[in-house]
Design a protein around this nucleic acid. Structure first.
Length: 433
DNA sequence: CCGACGATGAGCTTACAT
DNA sequence: ATGTAAGCTCATCGTCGG
């Protein structure tokens, strides 16, 4: 690794490697005349190795010929980095360091992670143990969409101590599906459900819908709650079609498809409507009117971006025995982890959350907060899924996307907390002696 | 400016048939 | 083993009326 970097330095590139970071992606654009390559270096702390990738101007993996041309051009001494005066050309981000087939992470079926209440398949030992370096405290809990583009979960795992993700569909904790992956270093023994237990079917969750529910609509679970809902026009069209073509099985199938597409429930005669914000709150395990105070549209948006409280609380429930006096929490990207903890009930000594911008939370600030409050027991957060989510037609650009790349800030902050925690431990040990 | 609406598929999975 | 079909998804953008 050092040799490779050394050669680049000889060629006139200044590639900075942060020695405090154990795992890092360096994305540097190199230019030479009219040639342009992007260099990706990816460090894996599990393998203590460095992988080097190049992409060409189009964002594809550069051919050997392109790399050779570039190096020859550079050796004439005309190489420069793009940070100079002129703006860099627009380029697509490369999906870097795609793992090979045997490294890809496949989604389990059924999607129950290490087990869920009321279902067989519960295990209390991880099939792949947590590496020593990642053993808590500090504990961490990271969340994102399960069905991310290929290779994303393998990469996120490699940046989080190679801990294998736990994929859980929250339909085992509610009346709606929600397929999510969680990377965490929590114990998995002696988890427990929070009370009261949730409603597991649409009928139990929304009893008023039962009398309007058509027999040919055999859904018992809703689909994943998204950030947008159907317009009133769709409800109107469904009603008109059903009244016009009563009993037509083809129309009925189309209607059910629409209901699945837009997550509609039957709230009147032939009236299929989207959920109200307060109904979504209940479905996701939040207190009533939790998101009240902003526009309806914004409520839907934040609810679509939420955790499912009962799922998260089930995973976090093991903290109750570990921290009977309360948990110091650093919450990133979202304040929803706190709700899950409120419902446990685990006493919370502190929650630091809702940072306007995680990028502003640098190592210095983290150390200051930890000195001030006595460290963090749990770092919880779900990084932005915008560029990973299947519903995104415009910019599903992967982990390096504009929003989703904030994942690396989660890693950075976690690493800083980790580092500081262990540094303090050492001081304590010396004092003990 | 704010909020509601409609148009905009791909990428990945599983299930099933061949 | 391989092909085919069906199903699902923490969304974004421009427009338009208030």
């Amino acid at each position: 690794m050092d040799e490779t970097v050394g050669k680049f330095v000889e060629m006139g590139f200044s590639i900075e490697i942060d020695p405090s970071s154990k795992s890092k992606l360096i994305d540097e654009e190199l230019r030479c005349g009219n040639l342009s390559l992007t260099c990706y270096m990816y460090f894996s702390h599990s393998e203590c190795s460095c992988n080097l990738f190049f992409s060409n101007f189009s964002g594809e993996i550069a051919s050997l010929a392109e790399v050779v041309d570039f190096i020859l051009c550079c050796s004439n001494g005309t190489a420069q980095q793009s940070r100079s005066n002129e703006p860099p050309p627009r380029r697509r981000k490369l999906n870097t360091a795609m793992p090979s087939d045997d490294e890809l992470i496949h989604l389990p079926n059924p999607m129950i992670g290490f087990g869920v209440p009321n279902e067989p398949g519960l295990i209390t030992e991880r099939p792949v143990p947590i590496p020593d370096i990642a053993r808590g405290p500090p504990y961490f809990y990271f969340e994102n969409v399960a069905m991310a583009p290929k290779g994303v979960w393998a990469k996120m795992s490699s940046h989080l101590y190679d801990i294998k993700p736990e994929f859980v569909d929250s339909l085992y904790f509610s009346a709606a599906a929600r397929k999510r992956g969680y990377i965490h270093n929590l114990p998995i023994k002696n988890r427990f459900e929070i009370q009261p237990t949730p409603h597991y079917t649409i009928e139990d969750e929304f009893p008023d819908t039962k009398k309007w529910w058509h027999v040919w609509d055999n859904r018992t679970k809703l689909n994943c709650v998204l950030t947008c809902i159907a317009s009133a026009q769709i409800t109107k069209d469904i009603r008109e079609r059903l009244e016009k073509h009563e009993g037509d099985p083809r129309v009925q199938k189309d209607v059910v498809d629409q209901c699945k597409r837009w997550n509609l429930v039957w709230v009147g005669k032939n009236k299929a409507a989207p959920l109200e914000p307060c109904e979504m709150e209940s479905l996701l395990g939040f207190p009533g009117n939790y998101t009240r105070g902003v526009s309806r549209r914004d409520r839907y948006k934040s609810l679509g971006n939420s955790f499912l409280v009962d799922t998260v609380a089930y995973h976090l429930s093991v903290l109750k025995a570990l921290y009977p006096k309360g948990v110091n929490i650093l919450s990133l990207f979202t304040g929803i982890g706190e709700v899950a903890l409120h419902r446990l009930p685990i006493p919370m000594k502190l929650v630091v959350s809702e940072f306007r911008d995680v990028e502003e939370l640098d190592d210095h600030k983290i150390e200051g907060l930890m000195d001030q409050y006595g460290g963090f027991d749990l770092v919880i957060g779900g990084s932005p899924c915008n560029n990973l989510a299947g519903a995104n037609r415009v910019s599903r650009t992967g982990l390096e996307g504009d929003q989703s790349s904030l994942f690396y800030d989660y890693c950075r902050i976690l690493e800083a907390v980790h580092h500081k925690t262990h540094k303090n431990e050492k001081v304590e040990c010396l004092l003990c002696r």
